[in-house]
Simulated assay, not measured.
Amino acid sequence: ITGAPVEKWTSGTTPKELNLAPGTYVFHEEAAPEGLLKVTDITFKVNYDGTVTVTNIGEKDAKGESNTVVTDGAKITITDKTDDLPRKITFSKVNLGGDEVEGAEVEIYKGDTITGAPVEKWTSGTTPKELDLAPGTYVFHEEAAPEGLLKVTDITFKVNYDGTVTVTNIGEKDAKGEMNTVVTDGAKITITDKTDDLPRKITFSKVNLGGDEVEGAEVEIYKGDTITGAPVEKWTSGTTPKELNLAPGTYVFHEEAAPEGLLKVTDITFKVNYDGTVTVTNIGEKDAKGESNTVVTDG
């Protein structure tokens, strides 16, 4: 294909008729319609009897397949194949600080629902994940988030024929009632897992040696491992256990005053875990009797 073409056109809904003198020509597809692969250059001959003969079917196409060309008298039919070649798409799973997060269990489903088996699945690491995906619609599904982070809801995206990616549905609101945070940049999609600081329901039971709830203990809960600043919760114990909503983290149980006839406990450090359980991390100093605090956790 040297010099200027003798004919050029954009295909339409009907075949194209040309008047060509007998001789050898090259059919060159400069650009294929979106969703189709262009054929490689095809050499053909217009014969003196008005028929056409393909003399060189061309190189293999982007799929590594031969062109599909059929002649019938003076007609030549050339087939553009579907462009389902994979594009390289990069997935970045980050925290609010922009750092890649490890341990997110991710699945990619073909189509706009998570039905059947995923076409790809992986556990996130310290670097973005590269996948080869054909053009089309997919769902990003986070099966499980790393500890301390909230998983995102399902996100629908489209791999375009030009190799870029577009989010078509950002998904439902997350467990915090907030929208997912998703950014695309060319062939890269960055999805942010937010910090899991949702409160968990924790129950405090203040009992005597007989196991009965005691009234009148003045209790304070401090965030962190020291009793500094203002307590995040405070109450006076009654005849039933006290339920609090506490975000995951470390706290100090401080008994400001015990009911008459009872010794107050020393400060006890505990941790609210992401699974909603509680762990005592420091049972505290010995009490006024020189004995250790008696603390039991259950869930």
Rank of each mutant, 00 (worst) to 15 (best):
D275I: 03
V69W: 03
G111K: 10
G210E: 10
K286W: 05
I283K: 02
E59G: 07
I202D: 00
G284E: 04
K271Y: 04
I221C: 04
E30C: 02
G224V: 08
N67A: 07
G35K: 05
T269V: 14
G177A: 05
T79R: 13
L263Y: 09
T113F: 07
I202L: 11
D162E: 10
T77P: 02
N208F: 05
G224S: 13
E220R: 12
V265Y: 01
E215N: 10
Y274V: 07
I202K: 00
V165T: 12
S237W: 00
K88Y: 06
D196L: 06
L20H: 11
V214H: 04
D298Q: 12
T55R: 01
E260C: 09
V46H: 02
P5T: 07
F44M: 01
Y109P: 00
L244F: 06
G97L: 14
T164A: 14
G73S: 10
L133F: 07
S92V: 02
I191N: 00
T294A: 14
A257M: 12
F157H: 03
T192E: 15
I283G: 00
V94D: 03
A32F: 02
D80W: 07
M179V: 03
T294P: 02
T226M: 11
L150V: 12
Y48V: 12
V69G: 02
T43V: 13
H141F: 09
K110E: 15
V139W: 01
E243W: 07
G12F: 15
K88N: 15
K264E: 10
I189G: 00
K81P: 00
K242A: 05
V165Q: 02
K188R: 14
V94M: 08
V207D: 06
K93H: 10
E215F: 09
Y274G: 01
V69F: 04
L133N: 05
T164C: 14
G211T: 04
V46L: 09
T77E: 13
A4M: 10
E130F: 06
T43E: 14
V272M: 05
V280M: 05
G216M: 04
E34N: 11
L131C: 10
E260R: 05
E143H: 13
